[in-house]
Design a protein around this nucleic acid. Sequence first.
RNA 1: GCGCCCAUAGCUCAGCUGGAUAGAGCAACGCCCUUCUAAGGCGUGGGUCUCAGGUUCGAAUCCUGAUGGGCGCGCCA
Length: 589
Amino acid sequence: MKEYIAGLIQSAVDTLKASGELPLEVSPKITIDNTRDKSHGDFASNVALTLAKPAGKPPRQIAERLCSIILEQAIADKKGVEKAEIAGPGFINFFVSSASSFAVVPEILTSGEAYGRSNAGKAQKVQVEFVSANPTGPLHVGHGRGAAYGATVADLLSAVGFDVQREYYVNDAGRQMNILATSIWLRYLELQGETFTFPCNGYKGEYVYDIARGLGDDHGDKLRHGAATVFENIPADEPAGGDKEVHIDALIARCKALLGEENYLGVFDSGLDNIVGDIKDDLGGFGVHYQNWFSEKSLSESIDGVIDQLNKSGHLYEKEGALWFRSTEFGDDKDRVVKRDNGETTYFASDIAYHKNKFERGFTQVINIWGADHHGYIARVKAALEALELNPEQLTVKLVQFAILYRGTERVQMSTRSGSFVTLRELREEVSNDAARFFYVTRKAEQHMDFDLELAKSESKDNPVYYIQYAHARICSVLRKLAAQSSNWNRENGLAKLELLTLEHERDLASKLSKYPEVLNNAAINLEPHALTHYLKELAADFHTYYNAHKMLVEDENLRDARIALGMAVRQVVANGLKLLGVSAPEEM
RNA sequence: GCGCCCAUAGCUCAGCUGGAUAGAGCAACGCCCUUCUAAGGCGUGGGUCUCAGGUUCGAAUCCUGAUGGGCGCGCCA
């Protein structure tokens, strides 16, 4: 309908150009807005306002000329535009016929799950990388928002026709992983009966014991060394007046030396496999699935190549024994080290290689979803892309702000220290996957969010998830009720009798339903799932209002079939929307 | 100190990328109600869109500055 109206306006503008009433060189961009106020009709255009200046005429005068031409054409076309009128400073408002408003009902029932989807993305390859938490422990609630947001963005993009690859970057290389491996081994030694003080910088979570226990099951006491040997000549830990970093690094070296390469790797991998397995399982349970788990370790061979490339193109220099990337040349705050004075490459070097790798895989758009604390990282990654002669504009970084958990009005304290934190799994178990998925995406990503656990759990209309699911269940319940009366909904008859739907509530619902494809498209393109949650809440509210005011199961079969047809269309759209959000659409509550 | 993000009703948030009289839901207040199984329904009040400038036919929306809040400024990952 919007395209049709835009066409009407375009040809009216052309007519006026031909008659000399408008200058030939003007070519306004024609936008059709949804009206906010029903008295403004169904659609509105501001062309006359934008034409006023170049034409040198008052906007209302232009609107008047356009309007009369448009109206004449619209009536001849019989495409459903019944009225066009001028309002306010020079808007042209369009009124659509009742029949064409309700045409969306058969469209929805015919398209079913496909209603709202499109090929707008033209199968362009897009990558969405999200969560990518270090595999050093279970996911906590802070990761939940990134998981829900990333998964929904990816699903939205694929619903509008992009070829989406969901990827998790597994940081399976580097010092943190060595700290984990060493922590596991030390816990294993404890379980074997050794006594010593656990390093303050080690991983202290309960899960480390679990992995250590598994190590004992697999290896018995073969990996055991006496505590005295393990801690011999190790520099003091921080509580003992030393440096915790030096202490843990020495322990890592000792662990490697005592275990030997093969056994060390065994311990390391048991940690990695366990935790990545747990993360996969957790995300899978959350309805979050990936096409690719990309290993940082797999980059090891390409890092030198990338450093070499940057070096040859003159973007690197040596200082204080380290190799630096001159990222300030591309707008970063300071230059960054890519190779340390001890010869090891930095995490940043891996990340350059990783992003180069992403672009080599042919994505037209690469979307990274990061926690807000990583914002300082954007400049250097984009700088690296530029230095590699790649296009930084093809990389979109979405920063997801933190969510603060509340239980009613009381703030839930989270602490990542000493291994005590609220895990994503605990959250899912407490409030349900549906509520967690929904709540996490109801706010735009860059907005801070208050997540109320009590509200998420409540079974009342105050809880938006419940309210929307209830709309779906209610329609199902009507069908069950009808069946109990040993009667059936006659779909064909319903669709044939839509003209019986004359109530304002019905018209509002139909018009809301017809907005769904546009909402979906905008939500996807703008990476804003919250637009969809808000839409579904409005649709559910409209439906409940209608349902409360009017009976669906009326005596008149024709009217009853028509009303149920409208209800079924609502049910379909609610189901489609919830599906994209990863939320279930139950048939009864 | 520098950088990024945010600021809209008492609270939690929308605001369709610059349009018409800034909207929902809670909470408050006032009526109605006992239902297609539905934890109710309808209505009212509530705003200097943090502040000050600027851009233009037109600004909550764009630009500059200020204020307040969140976060970041490692040869950690």
